[in-house]
Computed example of a mutant assay.
Amino acid sequence: MAENAKRSRLSKLALANKPRLRMLGLAITVAATFFLLWQGDEPPLSSYSDAKKLRGDAEPDGFVINGSYTSYDEVGNRKIVFTSPRIEQFEEGNVATMEFPRAELFGTTGEGPWVLNAENGKLRQNEDLLYLTGKVNVVRTIGDREATLKTESLTLDNKKGTVYTGDPVEITDSVGTTSATGMKAWIDERILELNSQVKGRYETAQ
């Protein structure tokens, strides 16, 4: 009788411990699964270099379709709104290239933004420099007066808030046309400086 009672207690104890054993086994299985998945997502370092050799230096590490980028100043005001139908990212040098980029540059005066368009763009993210090339067009609005600047290349220095070029530029507004070689502009102050060979053609008042 005593032996039967002892066996009954042992059987009850084993049944009571089975849920704990099942939970422990499940926890070990889940942990092992996560470990295998994590290891599976991290390919060997050699595979990255092999992939780069296969695609070549000219191929991007990634790309974005219909990308949009917004930069803010220290107090939360917009500084730049930038869009492109295709942006390609290159990890080496932290460079991004863009097709038909468009940028809106906001100053501190509260007036309308400078609007830049071009055929191509290259953003050096470490230096915060944007290079625009190919039919660069800049529209600047002050009050009810609008001026358009055309050139073949333009550099935007986001840190200093300036845009500049050494190429010929042509500026057209409601009173005439001005051409020059090279220019520099300060976005916040809305100051435009022409470098050399400045020529102007203006309409006289009727």
Rank of each mutant, 00 (worst) to 15 (best):
D57V: 11
D61R: 00
F63D: 09
S47H: 05
A51Q: 04
T29E: 05
Y72R: 04
A31K: 00
S71Q: 15
S47G: 00
F34S: 08
G67M: 11
T33M: 14
Y69L: 15
Y72D: 03
E59A: 14
F34E: 04
V30N: 02
G62R: 05
L45A: 13
Y69P: 02
S46L: 07
I65T: 14
L36E: 05
P44D: 15
Q39Y: 08
T33Q: 09
Y48M: 00
Y48W: 03
L37V: 15
S47R: 13
W38A: 08
L45S: 06
F34L: 13
G62T: 08
P44Q: 07
T33L: 15
D57H: 04
A32M: 12
S49H: 05
D73N: 14
V64S: 10
S68T: 15
W38H: 08
G56E: 05
V64H: 12
W38D: 06
P44W: 01
K53G: 09
D57F: 00
K53C: 02
D57S: 11
A31L: 13
T29Y: 05
Y72G: 03
S71G: 07
L54T: 05
S47W: 05
G40V: 01
S47Q: 06
V64W: 10
F35P: 00
E59Q: 12
L54E: 08
R55W: 01
N66Y: 11
Y72M: 11
P43V: 01
A32G: 05
K53R: 13
S46A: 13
S68E: 15
G67T: 12
A58N: 11
I65P: 07
E42W: 02
T70A: 14
D61H: 01
A58Q: 10
A32W: 06
A32I: 11
L54R: 06
Q39E: 08
A58I: 09
E42S: 07
Y69K: 14
P60K: 01
L37H: 02
T70P: 00
I65H: 07
A58E: 15
K52H: 06
A32Y: 03
S68H: 14
